[in-house]
């Protein structure tokens, strides 16, 4: 494709549209949404359940596409994102915008008509929150961008639960809080080892603006309420011992990794291994806890 002269209009490949939806991020979104639905105390018709998860995935994909549409200039400046369809010039911005808006409207409409309007309403809020509050408003303005913006990624378990029950309860609210409070340590661990990338792009991530020491301290601080939100469903009687034991052990390990990151200093030629370990484990941690929640509910 690179051999085609730039004067020739080349339509974007379907794979580029797929890449626009950030499929890897979608995996976690779909998983937490599915677990939120399976943890609900009522059974769901398999077709309606499948449709709800599909809508969550499409909504997340739409938000990802609109994020990439808005941030094409930033993505071009960062090594990690420079090969995405827009900065690489494989797609026009207009195509990305139409695709994102179309997918967002379709996902919400399908959720409302096939599942229920409570789930559709929360899905709408989550898409708008990610695109308008996080991408447009916060990301380039404040180092607290991912703290508030993290709420966008915390909606799927709430949507999954609402899809099954048609309402919101304390357990999905705690799951929302868990993902919301998990996001800062997760992203700041990443930001510590890709700091140069963010600095080059002018994104005010905490390590760029406030320095590493403050970032490390904030990772430690946010881990405390996150640990409480993770373990709380057990003593509150909302889950059984399977979730309780796994959540306690998994959270203890998370806290240990976070403490190592919080109390260390970067050395010259530092490979940032503890930060990379915390980042990788934080993903596994979320899968582990949500998986345990479902096992606990169905065991």
């Amino acid at each position: 494709m690179s051999s085609i002269p730039s004067s020739v209009f080349v339509p974007a490949d379907w794979r580029d549209f797929l890449a626009l939806t950030k499929p890897r991020v979608m995996t976690l979104v779909v998983f937490t949404g599915l677990c939120g639905m399976l943890a609900a105390p009522v059974g769901v018709d398999p077709v309606i359940g499948f449709t709800a998860i599909l809508c969550i995935a499409l909504g997340a994909g739409a938000a990802g596409a609109l994020n990439q549409w808005y941030e094409a200039d930033l993505d071009a400046l960062m090594k990690r994102t420079a090969k995405r369809p827009l900065p690489a010039g494989r797609m026009t911005r207009e195509s990305a915008l139409h695709f994102g808006v179309g997918l967002a409207c379709f996902s919400v409409l399908l959720m409302g008509l096939a599942v229920n309007y409570v789930a559709a309403g929360i899905l709408t809020v989550s898409i708008l929150f990610y695109v308008l509050v996080y991408t447009v408003w916060l990301k380039r303005r404040t180092p607290q961008n991912i703290v508030i913006g993290g709420a966008a990624g915390a909606f799927p378990p709430l949507i999954g639960w609402a899809a099954a029950t048609g309402e919101i309860a304390l357990l999905p609210f705690l799951l929302f809080s868990l993902v919301f409070l998990w996001t800062p340590p997760h992203f700041w661990a990443l930001a510590l080892f890709v700091k140069t990338d963010y600095a080059n792009a002018g994104v005010p991530m905490l390590p760029v603006v406030a320095g590493e020491r403050v970032t490390r301290a904030q990772i430690g601080l946010y881990t405390i309420p996150m640990a409480i939100a993770a373990v709380a469903p057990w003593p509150l009687g909302l889950t059984g011992p399977i979730y309780g034991v796994i959540a306690t052990a998994g959270t203890a390990l998370f806290a240990a990794y976070a403490a190592i990151v919080a109390f260390r200093h970067t050395q010259p030629e530092d490979l940032m291994k503890p930060e990379k370990r915390l980042f990788k484990y934080s993903i596994l941690y979320l899968f582990l806890l949500f998986g345990a929640l479902v096992v606990d509910r169905w065991a």
Partner: peptide
């Protein structure tokens, strides 16, 4: 090359629409 790309997009769109028809049929049954 452009034709091949358009063909691939049209095939992907046809498969997607076919999937949606089947999905909406089953949603209606549910």
């Amino acid at each position: 090359r452009i034709r091949a790309k358009q063909r691939a997009r049209a095939t992907a769109m046809a498969l997607l629409l076919g999937f949606l028809v089947v999905l909406i049929f089953f949603i209606t049954l549910s």
